[in-house]
């Protein structure tokens, strides 16, 4: 048996998770499936559950001079309808279906840390940071230090992801492509995200490895030498995925590199 909580404030919530290990339940569009059970029954939760979706202070987007600060409970629909730059909105627009996006949250996609989480490549490319709160205070951590592996993060059981801090980037152009078995409502086989401005490029690859692939070293080298072939072989050497039910290692690696190659040929002279 598990207990279910619905605290009235963030501080009550932090007290609860300080005492007990809980599933922190926001939109729930992933955990409801993973804990599925027969009709009419409660979901098969293996830990106590704490519901936070009604804590509206955790929702909304703020803009400062150099960053966008996104509350963890902001939904994917909120992002799509926001004034955020198109290169942030677009990947969210292509996630899942309209009804799921109405419920699924920005924070959920991060903390869930699936290897196919489509928001992670964008957050990695933008050097996003996360604010985590516990009863004892707050800390800020870079997203690439937070995600440790497939479904594994650096979040301690008494911590709540509260805000996502996305530094602004003066983009001259971006490329985003995700491939899946169908166009909408599908988990990615791979995704490629590229952002650039003069003398700077950011390239991330999602769903190939357990973790998002990004190499600032390869990015810097490419801006200097514009050598596409050596960039691609650099990324190839970072790929260590496996065949699974969604795709094969070969397909993923080849298509990811082809997509990067095509786009870089197009923009090489603008860098």
């Amino acid at each position: 048996m598990f207990k279910s909580y619905r605290p009235h404030s963030i501080s009550d919530l932090l007290d609860i998770i300080d005492k007990e290990t809980c599933h922190i339940f926001a939109g729930g569009t992933d955990i409801m499936i993973r804990k599925r059970q027969w009709q009419g029954a409660e979901r098969k939760f293996t830990q106590n559950v704490v519901y936070i979706n009604h804590l509206t202070e955790l929702k909304g987007i703020e803009e400062t001079e150099d960053a966008y600060i996104i509350g963890t409970l902001t939904t994917q629909t909120d992002i799509v309808k926001s004034n955020l730059p198109e290169y942030i909105r677009r990947p969210y627009e292509l996630m899942s279906s309209p009804a799921i996006r109405n419920v699924a949250t920005v924070g959920g996609n991060i903390v869930n840390a699936a290897s196919v989480a489509d928001s992670l490549p964008i957050l990695y490319a933008l050097d996003a940071s996360l604010e985590l709160a516990s009863k004892y205070g707050k800390r800020i951590i870079k997203v690439d230090e937070f995600v440790l592996g497939k479904y594994k993060t650096n979040r301690q059981t008494n911590e709540l992801l509260t805000r996502v801090i996305v530094p602004k980037y003066e983009s001259e152009g971006y490329f985003y492509k995700k491939l899946g078995q169908r166009k909408a409502s599908i988990l990615s086989k791979i995704s490629v995200f590229i952002l650039h401005q003069p003398n700077n490029i950011r390239i991330t690859i999602g769903a190939v490895n357990d973790l998002v692939i990004r190499s600032t070293e390869l990015e810097r080298q490419f801006v200097l030498d514009k050598d596409i072939a050596s960039l691609l072989s650099g990324y190839k050497s970072l790929m260590n995925g496996k065949d699974d039910k969604r795709s094969t290692k070969d397909y993923r690696e080849t298509t990811a590199l082809n997509l990067i190659e095509d786009y870089l040929k197009e923009i090489k002279d603008e860098l």
Binding site: R6, G28, I33, R43, N53, H54, P98
Partner: peptide, 16 residues
């Protein structure tokens, strides 16, 4: 006023 999949929504998220 938001369309949602009721199979994925616990009643906790519907209060009020």
């Amino acid at each position: 006023d938001l369309l949602v999949n009721s199979c994925l929504v616990p009643i906790a998220n519907v209060v009020d």
